[in-house]
Design a protein around this nucleic acid. Structure first.
Lengths: 140, 140
DNA sequence: CTCGTTTCTGCAATCGGATTGCAAGATGGA
DNA sequence: TCCATCTTGCAATCCGATTGCAGAAACGAG
């Protein structure tokens, strides 16, 4: 696992591999769950918030990241493990814990596809479950 | 359709019917789709933003409103037509148009229920589809 | 009806995440 | 090496959400 695979990943998605982007991608790979801009800021304290923001935007545009709005106020992200495109059938569900605020990727669970109403063009689906995660349930 | 049914609706949900709340509920009933705090502010220009905010919060707590985060930056709401509780099986899907920014209630389409992972306690599900609505598709 | 208590509302201020303008720095090609 | 382009850091700004506080309204007891 050298740096090379990071560069390759970026290039495969049509992203020019700069030092900042390689660093951020490496950090992202170490998160177990979803992460926010603030999380990245903590891990990469040499980088500026705006650079991280622009990197996130770029990665998302190139389908290297999923964007998740969990209603917590802060946008969450997670690495997209599909290749180039993110077809609807490949999207997975997310779980947001209302107690600890963490958002989990339910990688194994694909978004159930419904029969969409006539006339709408579907680009993307967010399936977000809210409730209490196992850790928070066991407390108290 | 006199004001009475508005008061009754509020009381049925355990909300004390004040003038502000009755007015807001009436305005909400006139929206076809989802609405934001700003939408209500426009319609009820005598009311203060914070009063509207607190009313929305209260209505949501008492399950009179659904809260929808569509990623547009502004939280959207829609009236909940189920009685007291909002069971998962009763939740419906939403569609967010990335062109015009409107969010539609797909009332007829219930959220598909998946088999949830062990250990998580499900309270609520958001199923949000993004894409282009019929009106925006027909243009250009 | 009056008084005291609780609830609600408007106003103003604040918070926090998202986003942008700009100039300096880094990169790539001729 | 030099120029054009892309990136990045810094600082400022935007905007929706949220809160503190004091006056107004609603309620219940006597």
């Amino acid at each position: 696992m050298n740096d090379n695979h990071l560069e390759e990943t970026l290039q495969r998605h049509g992203i020019r591999p700069t030092a900042v982007r390689i660093l951020l991608l490496e950090i992202m790979e170490h998160f177990e769950n979803t992460f926010s801009l603030a999380d990245l800021e903590t891990e990469a304290d040499t980088l500026d918030k705006s650079s991280i923001f622009r990197t996130l935007t770029l990665f998302a545009q190139h389908h290297l990241l999923h964007v998740i709005e969990d209603g917590s106020g802060a946008t969450k992200y997670c690495l997209c493990h599909n290749d180039h495109t993110c077809r609807v059938e490949e999207m997975h569900c997310h779980f947001h814990c209302e107690i600890c605020g963490k958002t989990f990727c339910l990688d194994k669970i694909h978004v159930p596809v419904i029969s969409y109403p006539e006339g709408y063009e579907v680009r993307e689906i967010n399936y977000l479950i809210k409730g209490r995660c196992p850790a928070c349930r066991s407390k108290r």
